[in-house]
Amino acid sequence: MAVSAKDARKYLTKYKRLDLAVDAYYNNPPTPAPQASTSKLNALFDKYKDGDDITIDGTIKLCEDLDVNPEDVVLLAVAYELKSPSMGQWSRKGWVDGWKALGVDTIDGMKTTLQKLREQLATDTDYFRHVYNYTFEFSRPPGQRSLGLDMAQGFWQILIPHGLQGGALAHVPSAAQDEDGDDSMDGSGGPEEGWKDDYTQWWSEFLEKNGTKGVSKDVWQMFFEFVRTIDSKFEKYDAEAAWPSTIDDFVEYAKNRVEGNA
């Protein structure tokens, strides 16, 4: 039985071990996605389009029909799935191919799929990474290499809490696990703590104080890894690793705030 990359990732993420994932797949294989109708999807696209594409006005109407706030984090997952070329814009090909791959061709079906995508974005680290990286690409202004600070801050404010709450951004301890396989300790007798919700605001405030105007692709992508691996006291940061200098400087800023010196 052939296994799609998407299904393989799903089972490995859930069961962590290859042997358990394989057993689970064969004992409880995924239900084949229903075949979506190209004609129905084209008709829906025509309902919302303005010219060749669906643009801002059509997107707002679509959100109303889907009962979703235009600023809901799940729309970033939809943008990834439908390969949105830019914010609030959807091409016919991306729309049809994307929804067909998801197996839906009605508004009710899309509502259900949005709930599934929201959960996957919250819990699946690999999926979160894909959506996170795509967010930078599709929201970056044409011809620009960086993303404006205000826009980057807005995306971080909805993405990071979502991933922290669901586990997609669960802390990866910087120290090796002990011989018994227990999590490394932070000195308090429990698992090492990582990024906290308040730190996302600290990061935004630091960038503003630093006079940052735009966020580069390197900083955007490395920030994802930083959030997952840094300890809550910023003590185990490896300054010799290939982190962007912006993150180097933030660690010093954050240490001072943790110690009550800022």
Rank of each mutant, 00 (worst) to 15 (best):
G163L: 07
H162M: 08
D150N: 03
D180T: 07
M151E: 15
Q157T: 11
S174K: 04
Q165K: 15
E179T: 03
D182Q: 05
G154M: 06
Q165F: 09
A152R: 08
L159C: 13
G187I: 05
D186K: 07
M151P: 00
Q153P: 01
A176D: 02
A170C: 09
P161Q: 08
D186T: 10
E192R: 00
L169T: 10
Q144A: 14
G154D: 04
D180P: 00
M185D: 04
I160A: 11
Q144P: 02
G148M: 11
D183N: 00
S146N: 15
D150R: 03
L169Q: 14
H162A: 15
I160K: 07
G181V: 06
G163T: 10
D186M: 09
S188D: 13
L159R: 03
M185Q: 02
G154H: 10
H171S: 06
G148E: 14
P191G: 14
L164G: 11
I160W: 09
D180R: 07
L164W: 10
S188L: 12
G163I: 09
A170R: 15
S188Y: 08
V172I: 15
L159P: 02
Q165T: 11
A168P: 13
G148Y: 12
E179M: 09
R145I: 06
M151T: 15
A168D: 13
Q165E: 08
G163N: 06
A176P: 11
L169D: 14
I158N: 10
I160N: 07
M151I: 10
A168L: 05
D186E: 05
P173T: 00
G154N: 10
A170P: 06
L149F: 12
M185T: 11
D186R: 09
L164Q: 08
D183F: 07
D183E: 09
I158T: 14
G154R: 09
R145G: 00
F155W: 13
V172G: 01
G167N: 01
Q177H: 07
D182P: 00
D150L: 09
I158A: 06
D180Y: 12
D183K: 01
I158K: 11
G148K: 14
Q153F: 06
F155T: 03
G163F: 10
H162W: 13
G189H: 11
G190S: 08
L147I: 10
D183G: 00
D186F: 03
E192A: 00
Q165S: 15
L169M: 13
A175C: 00
S146H: 14
A168I: 13
E179C: 13
A175D: 03
H162K: 15
P161R: 04
H171K: 02
A175L: 01
L169V: 12
P173S: 02
A176N: 05
H162Q: 15
S174Q: 08
Q165W: 00
Q153Y: 04
Q177G: 02
L147K: 15
D178C: 04
D183R: 03
F155Q: 10
G148N: 12
G148R: 12
D186S: 10
E192C: 01
D178F: 06
G189L: 02
M185R: 13
L147W: 14
L164Y: 07
Q177F: 07
F155C: 05
Q157W: 07
A168T: 14
A176Y: 00
I158V: 15
E179F: 07
P173H: 02
G154S: 11
